[in-house]
Design a protein around this nucleic acid. Structure first.
Lengths: 104, 104
DNA sequence: GAATCGAATAAGTGTATGCTTATGTGTAAT
DNA sequence: ATTACACATAAGCATACACTTATTCGATTC
């Protein structure tokens, strides 16, 4: 189940940090490491997990590999969350505002 | 960080199943175990993790403990997801429909 | 008040996971 | 071609985690 891979991938704070970085612009693995105190293999392994989960996708450019957020993964989380909409609290109105914002 | 606790809690498929069951109606721990092939201590431990993450809350009723979905946890996931709204795919329109549905 | 029942906690164990160092693979530069 | 570079993979290791059995706790029931 991919849903399982997604939650497992996001359960690690280092991977959430990587994902957040990529959300601010696609980057290659070396650029991602900057300011992160993480070894090259560790980064490579984390990216593999994120990619397997569908949260991130790669684009080879020469000997570089550019990583970017894969919307498919986020969509699955949104789907999962939607299942429990009956329990969303009132403050979820903020979400509605965001969606309204997207329409413009 | 509570966000971390949430993703860690949902990284386990057994806990996601428990959460899903509770979303269909509050239950005590024994009722949750039905059809799940899980020991009593294991269930108790899973519920403790879900509770610590703010995904579930308890309500003691005599010697029973009734568990129910805690909207606060879901709100945090929604907040996390909202951070990446720029990457939400078009098919997220389904989510908009759901929200519209909530208004009625 | 003794027994019973629902649930939590304690302690121990096998496996999963995230890290390390070492090495491999492919591309670009000299 | 040889060297350097970006990244992936392999192998090993320490810790985290989900489970087990045993025990404890608290509240009902007899």
């Amino acid at each position: 189940m991919i849903e399982h891979d997604i939650f497992r991938a996001l359960a690690d704070s280092t991977r959430r940090t990587i994902f957040e970085k990529l959300a601010n612009g696609s980057m290659n693995a070396s650029a991602l490491r900057k300011g992160m105190d993480i070894s090259q293999p560790a980064m490579s392994q984390h990216l593999a997990v994120l990619r397997a989960a569908g949260l991130v996708r790669e684009q080879k450019e020469g000997r570089f590999v550019n990583y970017e957020v894969d919307p498919d993964g986020l969509a699955l989380i949104a789907q999962w969350l939607a299942k429990y909409r009956a329990y969303w609290p009132a403050r979820i109105d903020a979400l509605k505002l965001l969606l309204k914002d997207m329409d413009q």
